[in-house]
Design a protein around this nucleic acid. Structure first.
Lengths: 237, 237
DNA sequence: TCGCCAGAGTGAACACCGTTAACAGTTAAC
DNA sequence: GTTAACTGTTAACGGTGTTCACTCTGGCGA
């Protein structure tokens, strides 16, 4: 018990600030969540927020981390919700869940996945909480794909089909994918790449010149990339 | 000859302004290209720019249109550069060219493709010059795919494999694709979706946790999606 | 219980931003 | 040659993130 009364008050205020920031984000997009606007939202002066966050960017980073955690929790709940579902069903579930969350929270999704990610391998790398939360999020998909492969290895390209340079980079990621062979890692990354690209395009409006409702297209694509992982069609509604 | 001296001066100034805006864009990202900063760049006061652009947003829109045109010109030059190349080669050429341009001009690419596109079907639709330039850009890919199909129709999903809702939306886009059948339209959109998503992910850094150099992965994916259009592997270097 | 100090909050100020208004000089047109 | 349009200016308004100096108060150790 090291939580003094003031610590609890402080934590509550931090939560209030992030809640206000999110409200502004939802209502007016990323550009609307300003330091002064947040302060105004809870009847404080702008400099007061500097007691809780070092800068405006820090506030946004904390909000991003929170949103990643919320999204991750939602997907985990979806994954563990139906005990009847097999691993393939679970993958379809969370893929659709990711799309649903993105469409239901476009502003939040834009904040998480729309902004360019600074290269952490560069010399100025500092692992923000947002990076860590993003890794927890990505791990949900990674673990599921790895489990699927472990349970029923899907056919994958042979190593000599991949080309030496690609092969070397895939091998380096093999242990991250629980020791899957390079060809299987390639298919896993293809799955993620296509799913991510598809959802980003839909949410960011890059698809509504072609589809007024991209849901059917999404399902078809999901089935396509699921097939590559040896999964059956889920529910062709 | 209705170009008075002042008209030419004015056009030159407009070009200067956009050049300065682009310089700032390249040097410091989208957030660095401000009205005052642009004015400072060419020794003007900020309100002077309002003689040439109605607002800051108008300036950005004009810059976007210019960049689309530049990109389109580059791809067209690539397409028409090698008279020996067949249509398939040309498609690989401009796909790689798009990636190269994106990697060489990440800030410009982010401005063109990173920002959410407002739905033009909504009631507040106003066709900006940027929209028109984007359509000219997209037409380069569309025409090439349509020509490829016309020359050598690639195998495509039958209509009953697509599902009724997806089929209806694809049919509506058939005439835009020079009367291609729905299944072929589906494959064309898949091509574009995957290419676009892939490049966005690489440029926006969403891929460098997996690949330090995504070039080999890009080539492999490009071959994959080219195969679906009945094309041979270009140059497996 | 007293004293003290860290924590929380304030208003003023700085430098920037997009934008508007009122004004002056130049240039083209009638 | 007069006039009107065009191009530019400075001043100002309201907005932003941020820092500084200041006050007040709650919780801790002596």
């Amino acid at each position: 018990m090291e939580l003094t009364r003031r610590d609890r008050q402080r934590a509550a205020t931090v939560a209030e600030i992030k809640a206000a920031a999110r409200k502004l984000l939802v209502e007016g997009g990323a550009s609307s969540v300003g330091l002064r606007a947040v302060a105004r939202e809870l009847g404080l002066s702008a400099p007061a927020l500097y007691r809780y966050f070092g800068s405006h960017e820090d506030l946004i980073s904390a909000l991003i981390a929170d949103l990643y955690d919320e999204l991750t929790d939602a997907l985990v709940a979806l994954r563990d919700g139906d005990p009847e579902a097999d691993l393939g069903d679970k993958l379809f579930l969370i893929a659709g869940g990711l799309r649903d969350w993105a469409l239901a929270h476009p502003a939040e999704f834009g904040l998480l996945f729309g902004a360019p990610v600074p290269n952490p391998d560069a010399d100025d790398h500092e692992l923000t909480p947002g990076h860590l939360a993003a890794m927890r999020f990505a791990a949900v998909f990674k673990e599921l794909v790895a489990q699927i492969y472990q349970q029923q290895p899907f056919p994958h390209p042979a190593e000599d089909e991949l080309g030496p340079e690609l092969l070397a980079q895939l091998r380096r990621k093999s242990e991250f994918f629980d020791g899957m062979p390079a060809g299987a890692v390639y298919l896993s990354l293809t799955y993620w790449t296509r799913l991510y690209g598809l959802i980003c395009m839909e949410v960011f409006g890059q698809l509504h010149w072609a589809f007024e409702d991209a849901g059917a297209y999404f399902q078809a694509q999901l089935f396509e990339i699921g097939e590559a992982l040896g999964l059956d069609c889920p529910v062709p509604d």
